Every structure is written in structure tokens, then in C-alpha cells.
Amino acid sequence: MEQHQPCSNSTIAEADRKLEQIKLAIDQYKQMKGALIPILHEVQDVYGFLPEPVLQVVSAELDLPMSEIYGVASFYHFFSLTPKGEHVIHVCMGTACYIKGAQGILDRLSTELKVPVQGTTEDNKFTLEATRCLGACGLAPVLTIGEKVHGRLTPNAVPKMLKEYN
């Protein structure tokens, strides 16, 4: 049977601080038309994703049904309903990158990281995502890890590239 560690006072204090930050954002935007999107941005900035319990607070505070909140959150690609890894890898699947072998790179990353596309590694170190054009066609095939651009890649370059982030 799995044993759970009790929450420490500092963990509880941190959770309270985060929730208080969200409530301040709600108060700041509440009267604005279209308040939901900036509030969801604040939630994601604070938590790294949109946790359901926090969305329930947003729902209650804005008097919006959860279905509307999920509709907005799932419509915009920059919102995530699941936690992301420490390093988010975006593999460009635009035409130039695809033609120059992006699928092989994506497959190799999936194999090396042992995750499906749109998945996060067990250690929460990496999240692997396929994306549309990254605007670096001259470097095709290209991917980003955080803000760093990696271009002119081959599948065999993937293991060495990943070691930079371990």
C-alpha cells in the first residue's frame, strides 16, 4: 500500500500563497469583459498548468460554469490542463521541417524519452510536443527546448542534445 507523506506547513503555506495570488487576479479582472483569459493565464503562470481545483475557484468567483472554463481552456493551445515537464520540447512539423525529416526526430525523441507525443516523462523532466511552424525554416528540421532553438537535426543527434538538459 502506498504511503503518503503529511503536508508540511511550508507546503500548505505555498499552496495558500498561490491561491491568494489567483484570488487577487480574479479581483483585478473580474469586472472586465473577457476576464476569463487573463485569469487563466495567471493560473497557468502560477501553477504551470490549469489544475481543476483552482478552476473550480475561478468558476465560483466568476459565476461561470466549468464547461465554459474548459471550453476556453481547451480551445487555446497555450493553456494546458495537465502539468508540463521542466523542459518542454516543441518539434516543428511544418512543411519544410517535415520534408527534411522532423517525423524521424519526433519518433527518436519519443523513444529516447519513453513518452508518446504530448506526453511528459515520469520524472517530469521533459514534455514532448509536436507543433506547427516555428518560423525557422532555414534550420529545418528544427525544435525548441524552452527558448533554445536546435536546428539541422538528425535522429542520431537526439541523445547528445538531450544530455545537455540532464
Rank of each mutant, 00 (worst) to 15 (best):
G119F: 03
K114A: 00
Y76H: 12
T11A: 15
V91M: 10
I89E: 02
P141G: 09
P6M: 06
T111K: 15
A157E: 13
E164S: 13
I22M: 04
V88W: 02
I37M: 05
V142H: 05
L55D: 02
P83H: 10
M66D: 00
L81I: 09
S59W: 02
A136N: 11
A96T: 05
P53I: 04
A130K: 07
V149I: 15
A13M: 13
S10W: 08
L162H: 07
F78D: 04
T154A: 14
G101R: 04
E2G: 13
A130F: 08
I105A: 05
I37S: 01
F78S: 05
V57G: 03
T121V: 05
K100I: 03
P53Y: 09
L109D: 01
G135R: 13
Q21H: 13
Q5N: 08
Y165C: 07
E61I: 10
S8V: 03
N166P: 03
V158G: 02
A73D: 01
M161W: 05
F49A: 09
D107K: 13
N9F: 08
D123W: 00
I145Y: 04
C137W: 07
S80K: 06
V158Q: 00
V149D: 02
E42L: 05
C97W: 01
N156C: 12
G135T: 08
F79Q: 03
I145T: 11
L50R: 01
L139V: 03
V72C: 07
L128Q: 03
H41R: 13
V142W: 01
F78W: 12
P6K: 03
H87A: 08
H77I: 02
Q21P: 06
Y76Q: 05
S74E: 15
L143V: 06
H77A: 06
A13Y: 14
E61M: 06
E20H: 14
E147F: 15
I12N: 11
T144E: 07
K23T: 11
